[in-house]
Amino acid sequence: MTKTTSFETPPNPKAPAFLAELLAARSPSGYETEAREVIKKRVAKNADSFEVDALGSCHATLEGTGAPTLMLAGHLDELGLIIKHVSDKGYLYFDAIGGHDRSMISGRRVDILTRKGVIRGVTGKRAIHLMSPEDRKKVPEFHQMWIDIGAKSKEEALERVTIGDAAVYTHGLESLHGSLVVSRAFDDKSGAYAVNEALLRLKKGKKQASKVVAVSTSQEEIGTRGAISSAYLVNPDVALVVDVSHATDHPDADHRKYGSFELGGGPILTRGPNIHPGVFERLVQCAEKSKIAVQIEADPRPTGTDARAIQVARDGVPTGLVGIPLRYMHTPSEVIDLNDLEAVVQLLVAFARSLRKGERF
């Protein structure tokens, strides 16, 4: 008798409910409403004040016993697609919101955010059977792909969607193995979770000296735009940015070029011109005191994160960057280790509690 194998969906991950809600929220850059609602629900009632600025970033403030003001920033937007044209046959043509790998777009299920609600679509392109040998070697351009919503005409499609509607992949949160989990949009829902969770934990303990403002920034993926206005509004004395950083513990990653970083190795702390040396050293000290393992990354340029905008806000802000190790960045299936994420939260709390009244960097 042949033994049959039962294929089951991976068990639900042991991820914090707050993080899971953020990942379920659809929030491409400039369309972050769903993620803002999650932040508001989870954080507003526990903060001393809560506001949303003109660019859609959330500011949750926890008052301290004095100065300095510490800004914690993680962006709540994700990659997306934007509808640009509807064909006579009802197919939707699109462009990218953020930096997509075009080779991974086709054949995906997407949710389109419309005025009438969310509708499902499928990204398509010409099948490989209908391509010449030369075409098979090429990555399709955006105008060579489309979204199929099952419409039979332009008129029918435009009854359901509008030019300018945004879409995101539907790949949700699942366990991979042990503490490893997979989802779209860990970049940077995990960072937005970390800064807000740190504020919630600070709220539960003894009042810290520093005023802490957890900012869930908007529009990072299209140029760190939300961080520009948020840093101006907060006017911090010191800032920590939390974003994902490349784990290079997979095949085809040249450590001579990209450094050696692994999932489960702890937060990645960046050094370089974008990072204030005093803030970096304080992070290292806090990690050592709290027995948190960290990994060190060198970046010779302004980083591709909100840190680049916050550092040069107003008359300059001493800024640090804490990375969450992540595999397969900007794909529909990003992978992190929940232990690394928890270590990041603990490090943020330790840093905030290390600040003394009137301290400056």
Rank of each mutant, 00 (worst) to 15 (best):
Glu51Met: 11
Ile292Arg: 12
Pro267Ala: 09
Thr270Trp: 06
Pro68His: 11
Gly117Arg: 04
Thr331Ile: 11
Arg184Asp: 05
Val212Gly: 05
Gly304Phe: 12
Arg126Trp: 04
Val242Lys: 06
Thr331Glu: 09
Gly99Gln: 10
Pro10Arg: 05
Val284Trp: 11
Arg126His: 07
Arg201Ala: 14
Ser106Cys: 12
Ile163Gln: 13
Tyr258Met: 15
Gly191Pro: 14
Leu130Met: 14
Thr4Lys: 12
Arg282Ser: 12
Phe361Thr: 10
Leu113His: 02
Val181Glu: 07
Ala67Ser: 15
Ser153Glu: 09
Gly278Val: 01
Gly259Tyr: 06
Tyr31Phe: 14
Ser183Gln: 05
Ala287Val: 03
Gly223Pro: 09
Arg256Ser: 15
Arg126Glu: 14
Lys206Cys: 12
Gly64Thr: 13
Leu22Pro: 04
Asp306Ile: 00
Asp243Ala: 04
Arg327Asp: 08
Ala67Asp: 14
Lys84Gly: 13
Glu34Trp: 00
Leu62Phe: 04
Asp77Ala: 09
Thr331Phe: 12
Phe142Trp: 15
Val168Asp: 00
Asn339Gln: 13
Gly56Asn: 01
Gly30Ser: 08
Arg109Pro: 04
Val344Met: 14
Ala157Val: 07
Ser210Arg: 10
Leu347Ser: 08
Ala352Gln: 02
Pro251Asn: 12
His143Pro: 10
Tyr258Thr: 15
Thr69Met: 08
Val212Arg: 05
Gly80Val: 02
Ala54Gln: 12
Gly164Thr: 01
Lys207Arg: 15
Val139Phe: 11
Val86Phe: 10
Gly80Trp: 05
His75Leu: 04
Glu197His: 11
Ile112Lys: 02
Ser153Gly: 06
Lys137Thr: 13
Ile83Gly: 02
Leu70Glu: 09
Val43Pro: 07
Leu341Asn: 05
Ala227Ile: 00
Met104Trp: 09
Ser245Trp: 01
His276Arg: 14
Pro277Met: 08
Lys211Gln: 07
Lys138Glu: 11
Ser218Glu: 03
Gln285Trp: 10
Thr61Trp: 00
Val244His: 02
Glu221Met: 07
Ser230Val: 13
Arg102Ala: 15
Gly56Phe: 06
Phe7Thr: 11
Ala17Pro: 08
Val345Ser: 06
Gly117Pro: 00
Leu347Cys: 06
Phe94Ala: 08
Gly178Cys: 01
Asp101Val: 11
Thr9Ala: 12
Thr319Glu: 07
Arg271His: 02
Arg42Cys: 03
Leu321Gln: 01
Lys14Glu: 14
Tyr232His: 15
Gln144His: 13
Ile222Trp: 03
Glu220Gln: 15
Ala96Asp: 03
Gly323His: 07
Ala309Gly: 07
Gly320Asn: 09
His246Gln: 13
Asp77Glu: 09
Tyr31Gly: 00
Trp146Met: 00
Pro332Asp: 10
Glu32Thr: 06
Asp243Leu: 02
Glu221Trp: 02
Ile149Thr: 04
Leu240Glu: 00
Arg353Trp: 03
Asp48Phe: 09
Gly226Arg: 07
Gly278Gln: 11
Asn274Gly: 11
His85Leu: 11
His129Tyr: 06
Asp254Tyr: 08
Thr162Tyr: 07
Arg36Ile: 00
Leu113Asn: 03
Pro28Leu: 04
Ala60Gln: 09
Arg327Thr: 03
Ala247Lys: 05
Lys289Cys: 02
Glu359Trp: 12
Leu199Lys: 10
Ala60Ile: 10
Lys211Trp: 00
Ile119Glu: 01
Met145Leu: 09
Gly121Met: 05
